[in-house]
């Protein structure tokens, strides 16, 4: 039986872009706005563009927090993208302190406007960046297996995730002198700060791997 992949619609994301990218890599996906449908899904994609408190408020209003947490607790694959990834962390500090889904313990904090060498950086951080494997083997058998750091991905963000456990950092990138988590992972729970659906063929490859694995 074909796997069921759902893109979570909570009113704050670029659904169309994700949907089309998933379709392009051959995945049958449905857009899910009814929380009761989440339990029937094999894999979840949680997109998001916007502010952390707004995102969590909308997930809560729509009764999606518990079904999403349950999905992850059952060991089913999960992919958060951008704000969707940030909300996987424990606590967000955008505008106000907000509880996240806590699939990956840690926090989401602002990118520094001035880096450790005193150089001012432009925020939001927009553009293409190379990513690194944080430790040997971190990408083995994961959707990033095909990359090996040879291609950049597209980032658009003002905040970044800081997992409590460094082993949950799946990929790193630089912002000035800061090395930050470009992607996070806890088992089959994946999250990317960058936008695979906007990162050309390299991004599509990541989605393809997520669908296949």
């Amino acid at each position: 039986m074909a796997q069921k992949i759902g893109i979570i619609d909570y009113g704050l994301s670029n659904l169309l872009s994700i949907y089309r990218a998933m379709k392009h890599v051959g995945a049958e996906t449905t857009v899910v706005s009814d929380p009761s449908e989440i339990e029937n899904l094999d894999k979840v994609v949680l997109p998001g563009v916007g502010a952390f408190p707004d995102g969590m408020k909308l997930l809560k209003q729509r009764g999606m927090i518990e079904p999403l947490r349950l999905h992850a607790a059952q060991g089913k694959p999960f992919l958060g993208i951008c704000l969707g990834m940030q909300m996987m962390l424990g606590t967000g500090f955008e505008m106000e302190e907000t509880q996240g889904l806590n699939l990956i313990p840690g926090k989401v904090i602002p990118l520094p406007a001035i880096d450790s060498s005193g150089v001012a950086s432009r925020i939001p951080h927009v553009g293409w960046e190379f990513i690194r494997e944080p430790r040997p083997g971190a990408w083995y058998n994961t959707p990033l297996a095909g990359n090996a750091g040879h291609q950049p991905y597209y980032f658009v963000h003002s905040y970044f995730a800081m997992p409590d456990n460094p082993d949950h950092v799946w990929a790193e990138a630089d912002f000035g002198t800061l090395s930050f988590a470009a992607a996070v992972r806890n088992g089959v729970i994946f999250g990317t700060q960058f936008h695979p659906e906007k990162s050309g063929e390299q991004g599509l490859e990541l989605l393809h791997q997520f669908v296949q694995q």
Binding site: L16, S17, H24, K198
Partner: peptide, 11 residues
């Protein structure tokens, strides 16, 4: 724009 996002996967 809609038609473009069907096959163009950059911003």
């Amino acid at each position: 724009v809609k038609q473009t996002t069907d096959h163009v996967f950059v911003p």
